[in-house]
Design a protein around this nucleic acid. Structure first.
Lengths: 123, 123
DNA sequence: CTATCATTTAGATGAACGTCGAACCACCCG
DNA sequence: CGGGTGGTTCGACGTTCATCTAAATGATAG
């Protein structure tokens, strides 16, 4: 069946091992780990949410009011609110109501998790 | 309506500008750009595909035969094939038939695109 | 050429998702 | 207190997606 059953690099050095690969290419993801990351990825795997995240992150002061976000889309308020909720539930953004408006900001640690997954891939 | 209409950092220096933020927090993503990236993200926003990508990437020799991948899942062969096709269509992996088996490998450039999107976020 | 093994395609089904309209809640202002 | 504005929640509808079974394709071995 199997063509090669994991020759398993002689775990000797961490020299090349450490720089070489992104976590995703370092060792096979576990089932639970993959499920957890997929939730995070699903949250950003949508054009609207991607733009929302970007608009929030690039907004002056690191915060954006919903009123700043709505106009950029051809969508109703409930839809925008829904997308924001998805991002917030995933822990990618935080929110707070201050007076009349609700403000959103990015949670860098969580966003960085996504980047770290793929980044140190040798190109 | 708008609380603040994008003060727009004086595009002068690239000093702080370059180190500070991930592309996603540098400036608002365009509509087309977001759509294109969403396709890429959707491809990896699935536990099975995430594990497949990881198994391929971490396999000795940088390649993995489908026969090496199937056993790790409780899914039928057509389903695995479907997921591999999604990844391949997104350009994240390449494939080639050699004799009896089909081999898959990661396309680092494309995977790196994902990482670069979120990575240089100041933590 | 035929048998067999591995992979892909096609069609079907049930769940999850994006979107909307309407109702609802929170805060500000007369 | 009551009205108005900004955001969210709720319920519904159509689409997309993951998965299966069954069948077709392709390649290798005898």
């Amino acid at each position: 069946m199997t063509a090669a059953t994991l020759p398993l690099v002689p775990k000797s050095k961490d020299a090349q091992d450490a720089v070489c690969c992104a976590p995703i290419a370092r060792q096979p993801l576990g089932e639970g780990e993959a499920a957890e990351l997929a939730v995070l990825l699903k949250a950003v795997a949508d054009p609207v949410r991607l733009r929302l995240l970007s608009m929030i992150g690039s907004h002056a002061g690191g915060e954006a009011c919903v009123c700043d976000l709505t106009d950029a889309f051809d969508l109703t308020a409930p839809t925008i609110s829904h997308h924001l909720k998805v991002l917030r539930t995933a822990g990618l953004i935080g929110s707070e109501r201050r007076g009349t408006w609700v403000y959103y900001w990015i949670v860098p640690e969580q966003v960085a998790r996504l980047g770290a997954l793929f980044t140190p891939l040798a190109v």
